[in-house]
Design a binder for these strands. Structure first.
Length: 564
RNA sequence: GCGCCCGUGGCUCAGCUGGAUAGAGCAUCUGAUUGCGGUUCAGAAGGUCACAGGUUCGAAUCCUGUCGGGCGUACCA
């Protein structure tokens, strides 16, 4: 339900009636329950322009708000706040309407656009490690969300499959001979072994360098080795994606190397448009407020990732026709993207009205605030981290006896992976993220387990009552607030999509669930002596709460359980 | 040196882009509870929002400066 939009429009009508224009009407949720449900604070701002007392303006607005069954009460408070209380009857009706709706009454956008979400982007020379975690799960959530809201989403996994390391890697792969693909299982080790050979054996090093050149020249033998290597490496990534429950497939892979053929054109186009300058032998684009230029071709003729990124923008805007391109990449690359985006627009690779945005996020730190590493200082492999999550989750499940070994494993997977994802998604992505096992697997606080528990508990109630849902009847204030909260999901999702900040959803969910727990504490459902209509109404409310939790978690790529 | 980001109770985080008495969860303290699935519920305590100015009816939020931390600083990605 787009509640704010409806309220904004009522305010707009009122302002119209008194010949006032406010180009940015924004009702906000009320700060406190005493202030009603929503408030409009624009009267104070208008006071100066109109040279009238803010309270008088508020008075005029209130007097001119059209009659609506949505609004129960309008009050003017303080210097000129307009406090809006939503009608309980209206709320009950709306919840009734979404009771059996898969989308919980949330509309698909009437004007969908093509959105490219660029995320994960692992390097094929190495195993996926914790550095890829945040991009992968934040990006996947955003892609899910945009899709749910109706946009045409194209996921792009910009894998790093090109560069000098591959000469060394394929030379080593060849040396080990056919049937040795098993050694690719641990890419980290494979890389180290190859590097060791490279450092110790001059002949091998020479061959590696030759292979880079051959590979770039399109040598069939080297290409074959390389393709084989990439295929295996990508297989490892897919294993991680599957464990993580991330919707990335081979169809979404658009490798760095796929842009190779266009790189020379990029340079030429920049040159034709007069954007290129040569400095210290390198071809650069100088930008007004950047101390350093964007280098697009090295003095030795080689291209850089800036060049590839430009080619990718061109592809996404011109071939894929994207109107919004979201890069889910860590904060350290913000300058890089700022420059690349600016050049892309100047060079017309991207139309002026296309949104190019860097969805940046902070680093992942351990409990003591240091970069997340293994005990001996190495990088933590993602697959190991996920396995540990499942192991820890298994230990934390208290009602173990209700599951057999198979079920327990499954439950632990859902709980453990959910915890890893939720704890990441529940904090503002821009700040650094402190990774804390105990916190994320706790039943207290804003965690996935708390949500999953609430969901399972509601399912238990519904089972016992045979799911007989009735019409919603709002009884007390707690019930009213809970029902209204349910209707706010759409507003939250829209804002989340606009700002690309998944933690809005998590905050909302936590509010909802704690509110439900309070409601449930005070408004018994299955106890004896509850009037049948009230019982059915409360069951319906509980059911919509469960559906809301499920839908929201689903967008975050987290599963729920019928029993926990 | 320059640029970007950050600084909110002991800890981890919110704070809806300028609104009313700055909110949660851990941890601490005090009560309640034979329990519709508990690792429960209610309450208390804990803050000069890093600091100093400025903008205005009104600032955690915007501007300037200072201090502290992180990251990045032309031919890696």
């Amino acid at each position: 339900m787009k509640i704010k939009e409806q309220l904004n429009s009522l305010i707009a009508d009122a302002l119209n009636a008194i010949n006032v224009t406010d180009s940015n009407i924004q009702v906000v949720e009320a700060g406190k329950p005493e202030f009603g449900d929503y408030q409009y604070n624009g009267a104070m701002g208008l006071a100066k322009i109109l040279k009238k007392k803010p309270r008088d303006i508020a008075q005029d607005i209130v007097a001119n708000i059209p009659n609506s069954d949505m609004i129960e009460k309008l009050e003017i408070a303080g210097p000129g706040f307009i406090n809006i209380t939503i009608s309980s009857k209206w709320i009950a009706k709306r919840v009734d309407e979404i009771k059996d709706d898969d989308r919980l009454g949330i509309a698909k956008k009437s004007n969908p656009i093509k959105v490219v979400v660029d995320y994960s982007g692992p390097n094929m020379a190495k195993q996926m490690h914790v550095g890829h975690l945040r991009s992968t799960i934040i990006g996947d959530t955003l892609a899910n969300l945009f899709t749910f809201l109706g946009d045409d989403v194209i996921r792009q996994n910009h894998i790093g499959d090109w560069g000098t390391q591959f000469g060394m890697l394929i030379a080593y792969l060849e040396e080990l001979g056919k049937g040795s693909e098993g050694s690719l299982k641990d890419l980290e080790q494979f890389y180290k072994d190859a590097k060791k050979r490279f450092d110790e054996d001059e002949a091998f090093a020479t061959k590696s360098r030759e292979y880079v050149v051959k590979l770039q020249g399109g040598d069939i033998h080297c290409l074959e080795l390389w393709e084989n290597f990439i295929d295996k490496s990508l297989g490892h990534c897919e294993e991680v994606y599957s464990k993580l429950g991330v919707n990335l497939t081979r169809d979404d892979v658009k490798a760095e190397s796929s842009y190779n053929d266009d790189l020379a054109n990029i340079i030429k186009e920049l040159e034709d448009k007069g954007l290129l300058q040569t400095s210290q032998g390198a071809k650069c684009v100088f930008l007004e407020d950047s101390p350093n230029p964007l280098i697009v071709q090295k003095s030795d003729g080689g291209y850089l990732y800036a060049t590839t990124d430009l080619a990718a923008i061109k592809f996404r805007c011109q071939k894929l026709k994207a109107k919004r391109v979201s890069y889910v990449v860590d904060a350290r690359q913000s300058e890089h993207f700022k420059q690349v985006f600016e050049v892309a627009k100047k060079a017309d690779f991207a139309p002026e009205d296309t949104i190019l945005e860097h969805i940046s996020f902070g680093m992942m730190l351990d409990k003591s605030g240091k970069p997340f590493k293994t005990r001996d200082g190495g990088t933590v492999k993602l697959i190991d981290l996920l396995d540990e999550a499942v192991q820890r989750a298994k230990k934390s499940i208290t009602r173990r006896d209700t599951f057999n070994e198979n079920e327990l494993e499954k439950v632990a997977e859902i709980v453990g992976i959910g915890a890893v994802k939720y704890s990441d998604l529940s904090i503002n992505r821009e700040s650094n993220y402190i990774f804390d096992w105990d916190k994320m697997l706790s039943l207290d606080g804003n965690t996935s387990l708390y949500q999953q528990y609430a969901y399972a508990r509601i399912q238990s109630i519904l089972r016992k009552s045979e799911r007989v849902l009735g019409d919603i009847k709002i009884g007390d204030e707690l019930e009213r607030r809970l029902a209204l909260k349910l209707l706010q999901l759409e507003d939250i999702l829209i804002t989340t999509a606009k700002d690309a900040k998944p933690h809005y959803i998590a905050s909302y969910l936590y509010d909802l669930t704690t509110l439900f727990m309070k409601f449930y504490e005070n408004n018994p459902i299955l106890k004896d002596g509850i009037d049948e209509d009230i019982k059915k109404s409360r069951l319906a409310l509980a059911s919509v709460v469960a559906n809301t939790i499920k839908l929201s978690l689903d967008i975050m790529g987290i599963a729920v359980l019928e029993r926990l």
